[in-house]
C-alpha cells in the first residue's frame, strides 16, 4: 500500500494555523509574565517569609510538581465553571498554566536565592540598604541571572505544554488543528506540520529568552560567563 502524502491540503489552512500560532504565543507570553511574578513572589516567601507562609508555598509547589498539568487544567477550569463562574476560556487556561509554571519557577528561583552568599546580605546591610532594596538589588537580581538558563528551558517546555489546554477547548495551535483534521482527514500530515511549527516556535522562544537575557543582564553580555 502506498500512501499519497498531501501536505498542500493542510497548508491551505495557513490562516487558521497562523491564528493558532498567535494564540499559543500570546498564551505563552502571559503565562511567562504572570508565572515569573508568581514564582518570584513565592520564592521570596519560601526563603524569607514566616513559617506558616513557607509551609503553604511548599505545599503548593509539591502538589503542582507531583500531579499532571492535564489534571490541574481539568480541576481548575472545570472546577471554576462548576461554581457558576463564567470565564473566557483563554483566561481560564492562562490561570491554569500560570498556577502550574509558578510552582516550577518558585523552585528554580529559590535555588538561585539560596545560592547567594550570606556575605552579600551583610555587605548590603552595612551599606544601609533596606530589606526591600537588598532583596531587589542584591538577592533577586543576581539569583535570576544565575538561574536564567534553567528558567528559559522551563518556559520553552511551558510553550510546548500549552498544547494541553486544547483539551479544555482552547483554540491554540494544537486545538485549532482539530478543525483542519475534521475537514481534511489528513491526520498524519497535520501532525507533521504541527511538529515542524512547534520546533520552530521552540527555537523562537529560546531565542527570545536569550535576547531578553542579554538585555537584562549586562554582566553576561560583556563577559559571556555564567555568574
Amino acid at each position: 500500500m502506498t500512501y499519497n502524502f498531501d501536505f498542500a491540503a493542510v497548508l491551505a489552512y495557513w490562516p487558521l494555523l497562523l491564528e493558532g500560532i498567535w494564540t499559543t504565543l500570546r498564551l505563552t507570553l502571559f503565562c511567562t509574565v504572570f508565572g515569573i511574578l508568581l514564582g518570584g513572589a513565592c520564592a521570596v516567601v519560601r526563603t524569607g517569609g514566616p513559617t506558616w507562609a513557607r509551609w503553604i508555598v511548599s505545599l503548593y509547589v509539591e502538589f503542582i510538581r507531583n500531579t499532571p498539568l492535564l489534571v490541574q487544567c481539568y480541576f481548575l477550569i472545570f472546577g471554576i465553571a462548576s461554581m457558576g463562574i463564567r470565564l473566557p476560556i483563554l483566561v481560564g487556561a492562562t490561570i491554569a498554566l500560570t498556577v502550574n509554571i509558578g510552582a516550577y519557577t518558585t523552585e528554580i528561583v529559590r535555588a538561585g536565592i539560596e545560592s547567594i552568599h550570606r556575605g552579600q546580605l551583610e555587605a548590603a546591610t552595612c551599606l544601609g540598604l533596606s530589606r526591600t532594596q537588598t532583596y531587589l538589588h542584591v538577592i533577586i537580581r543576581p539569583a535570576l541571572e544565575r538561574v536564567y538558563p534553567a528558567l528559559s528551558s522551563q518556559y520553552v517546555l511551558l510553550m510546548l505544554a500549552s498544547s494541553i489546554v486544547s483539551s479544555v477547548g482552547v483554540e491554540e495551535l494544537f486545538g485549532i488543528s482539530n478543525r483542519i483534521q475534521s475537514e481534511t482527514y489528513r491526520n498524519f500530515e497535520i501532525f507533521v506540520v504541527l511538529g515542524g511549527i512547534y520546533l520552530g516556535l521552540a527555537i523562537l522562544v529560546r531565542g527570545g529568552f536569550a535576547l531578553l537575557g542579554l538585555a537584562m543582564f549586562p554582566r553576561r553580555r560583556k563577559l559571556g560567563t555564567p555568574l
Binding site: G119, Q120, L129, H137, P142, E145
Partner: peptide, 30 residues
C-alpha cells in the same frame, strides 16, 4: 550605617554589578 563604614576580609562585592555600580548603589538607594 551612614556614619559607619565596615570592610571585611571577604570583599563581598556584588558580582553582578560593575565597580562603578557597586560603589554607586548605596548612595543612590540610601
Amino acid at each position: 550605617r551612614r556614619d559607619v563604614g565596615i570592610v571585611f576580609q571577604s570583599y563581598n562585592l556584588f558580582p553582578h554589578l560593575t565597580v562603578a555600580e557597586n560603589i554607586m548603589l548605596a548612595p543612590r538607594m540610601v
